[in-house]
Design a protein around this nucleic acid. Structure first.
Lengths: 346, 346
DNA sequence: TTGTATGCGTTATCAC
DNA sequence: GTGATAACGCATACAA
């Protein structure tokens, strides 16, 4: 049953049927109603999405291109919340969400792959290669999140001030003997463990955690610590499985070497540290204070509550979606974070 | 730049170009290579996905229709894992994942909405109304998960035996004085709180938790408990915010009334109970034993580890995806679960 | 092995 | 307010 069939059946033109569905103002209400009724009666479900998208050039599909694998992204609290924010807006606007990963088997937007049907792309947490950028459908729009993509609007959070604020809070509350930092994907070469002083770091435009480190360091310096001598560890993936061994190696240091303040670049890191500390009888916050970053629910819905920085991933997703749909000005926008003082570093 | 342009440019026919991309065996390797090279040179990105999908009738898009809102589903560990399993397979097969919610603003598959482009639908955790079923594209395939949809293949888990097994484990380990059950969306009328004996329950074909209750009851009866007298609570949504008040009301009962064993129908429930118990100084498992259901990571990556039933949501997603793509026999399939004995009910 | 012709189901531009 | 007609970009039977 196609539009044309219905037109023939009713003895009107195809344009009229099309208008009945798409431009109610272009025909008499009476006729429109008659058409809609007849359509239902004959089992015509409205204009075919595939044909419509070919004709109009738009699909009402928005793709989110994720830095990590879909498996990771869907299980990570931060990106899940981001996605749910995106989905909320798209949904309300009659669009649908297509999930894509830059780590895909096929190149993610392979011209004839379904990904190229998307009207717009939200690029989350990665710097697209120019190759990937070129493979975008010509007239698709793009919004970058967490990174800049030259010539496109973007959504960011204030990583440096946020980390400065939480580190300052931690340092002011009680001066730590041995502060330390656990970083996320900061080193130029993959590294799960201690960062030696001679190790090269990723440049600031390749990882947001570089900005976080700057914030931590600023606060540490202000409190009289030599930032180069503050021990730093690095973790390549923000999952329990990858974080745990690194954190174990820290917690299992002899008491006089073990840090008494861990500034973590993610809640996952901090929560993992918390769990492993509990298992070892290390008291938090008495023996060890912990700060996180992200403000994920899991950190707040437990005792002790995590001290962390809340980045509103859901709001971030909403904003990105509104931008891609043209509901908000497509400028570079900076979202602000909030310090959440919990129990792990009062 | 279209296929036709390229054909004209190269002085070959459109069919040849099309074949170069879709049916390599239909032309000489030399010509094919020449075409591919020239295409790249002239910036032709391969057949347009929209046009191709109109022509072939297939879009290489698979939609997952979720019972809950996208916001909930993306933040819930069980459905996230399921989705990641789906995504993994789709990805490997060159398909993309479209997320849909039955709770959508618009009716989810509104004929001309982009959802109707999908080649197949994975219906997760809900019984589609016949209205929704009718709105499916005519030749789209469907796989039901957790529920049966007449005439379509399905994926299930063994809810009843799993719950029997975990309840038996709990009852055998140490006979509880006051066992109780916290259910998930079990009552006919929405209810967050105690289930009075006269309250009607949803029929077994409307909620999987009914089968879980049967499993619990079977074990309880075997151990000499009158199942009608075992107190039961109900929660409508599997989130901390909704679970917490109900569980608080349980934990705040006077000591002599407070249950010493809580059989929970989800890990979220059990974890919430664990957190709230910790906050109240109720010792787990000494004063209160807890069992969950699902086997989410959060329950295993903490101390004490949750005693629970592991349903492999990821595998479930993979299977559903393989079925929808025709990679596995589209039969009714039952996945088995595994009892995980943790610390909350040793 | 390659080319020609047709139609997939729409929407947009015109005339009427 | 309505109707004919031409794209949209491609895939495929069929002819060469």
């Amino acid at each position: 049953m196609t539009l044309k069939d219905l037109a023939r059946e009713m003895g009107v033109s195809t344009a009229t049927i099309s208008n009945a569905f798409n431009r109610p103002d272009q025909l008499s209400p009476a006729l429109r109603e008659r058409i809609l009724d007849e359509a239902k009666r004959l089992g015509y479900r409205g204009p075919d999405a595939k044909a419509r998208s070919l004709r109009t050039g738009r699909s009402r599909i928005i793709a989110v291109l994720l830095a990590e694998s879909l498996t990771y992204s869907l299980n990570d609290a931060v990106s899940s919340e981001f996605l749910s924010g995106v989905a909320e807006v798209l949904d309300a606007q009659g669009h649908t969400l297509l999930l894509l990963s830059a780590r895909q088997a096929q190149s993610p937007i392979s011209g004839s792959g379904s990904a190229s049907m998307a009207d717009g792309f939200i690029v989350y947490g990665l710097i697209p290669t120019s190759e990937l950028l070129d493979s975008l459908p010509v007239q698709a729009s793009l919004v970058a999140v967490d990174f800049n993509v030259a010539g496109y609007p973007s959504v960011h959070i204030d990583n440096e001030p946020a980390c400065y604020a939480i580190a300052r809070h931690a340092l002011q509350a009680r001066r730590p003997k041995r502060p330390a930092i656990i970083n996320l994907r900061l080193t130029a070469e993959p590294c799960n463990g201690y960062i030696t002083p001679d190790q090269a770091l990723l440049p600031a435009d390749r990882t947001i955690t570089r900005a976080r480190l700057v914030g931590f360091n600023r606060a540490l310096a202000e409190h009289g610590f030599e930032t180069e001598r503050v021990p730093k560890w690095n973790v390549e993936e923000n999952t329990f499985d990858v974080c745990a061994p690194v954190i174990e190696s820290i917690l299992d240091l002899p008491d006089e070497e073990r840090p008494d303040l861990l500034l973590c670049m993610s809640d996952r890191l901090a929560l993992t540290a918390l769990t492993l500390a509990e298992q070892r009888g290390i008291r938090v916050p008495e023996d060890l204070r912990l700060t996180g970053f992200d403000g994920i629910a899991e950190g707040q819905y437990r005792a002790p509550r995590l001290t962390t920085v809340c980045q509103e991933s859901h709001a971030k997703g909403r904003l990105a979606a509104r931008m891609i749909l043209g509901l908000d000005e497509p400028h570079a926008k900076m979202l602000h974070t909030e310090l959440l003082v919990g129990d792990t570093c009062p």
